[in-house]
Design a binder for these strands. Structure first.
Lengths: 116, 116
DNA sequence: CAGTACGCTACATTATCTGTAGCAAACCGC
DNA sequence: GCGGTTTGCTACAGATAATGTAGCGTACTG
């Protein structure tokens, strides 16, 4: 594996991130989540672990290329892991993160009702 | 303004959305936020309204093209509005949404400490 | 060993973002 | 009025990221 020079600027080192150089954790997250499928992946893993292929199914057949890239990023960030039984799943940290996202789900429910 | 045919597939009608056809509100949000700068814009408007140019400054000089597109989407979604004094700001709904994002900020703070 | 599922990659096509320039309208101060 | 400034916003070429399809190598399973 020659590991081709990353064509994409991504998380660099410890906290530096595309778009914002501050490295403030919230910025890192906002940037990481501003990429396609990132949030969705976390969301789909909320209940059970899945194989990469099942995850792809859950994510509306998103292309394996991006899914894999997102999974790599999420793994590097420590939110997702690939474990023996069941495949991809949330780490303890990932689970904390998910809990921080639950209010968003509640908001979505309310919001969905309001807009007829 | 001839309104050129949208080259990009975006939110279609009421709840249908790129990627997921379910129209479930949470999916709409996850998709909307999976676009560059969307979350960041909401975040930067958390305290004060800003002119579009100030917002651009806050968003690390992101290109006005995308910013404008995101702003349009966020306005259509009813989270952001362009008001007389101060420029762009959150709507009441947008403010609710922001509150639903605060746990994420708290998580980010914790997370930032842990990863040395 | 054939059949299947796994994680993952290749790659051409398409979509999206960036960066710079600039427009028209509204607001100055004079 | 008439320059200067700022506003929201658009154009457009070039760069980057995502899609969709195909397929590799490695496990398993029978």
């Amino acid at each position: 594996m020659p590991k081709p020079p990353l064509p994409v600027q991504k998380i660099i080192g410890k906290g530096r991130v595309r778009g914002s150089r501050t490295g403030r954790p919230i910025m890192v997250l906002l940037d990481l989540f501003g990429r396609r499928w990132a949030l969705r992946i976390l969301w789909e893993l909320r209940e059970t672990s899945m194989t990469s292929r099942a995850l792809r199914g859950a994510c509306d057949e998103a292309s394996p290329t991006v899914l894999n890239e997102r999974l790599k990023e999420l793994r590097e960030a420590g939110f997702v892991e690939l474990a023996e039984p069941g495949g991809y799943g949330l780490t303890p940290t990932g689970r904390e993160l998910l809990e921080a996202l639950l209010p968003l789900n509640r908001f979505a429910a309310r919001w969905g009702k309001e807009r007829s």
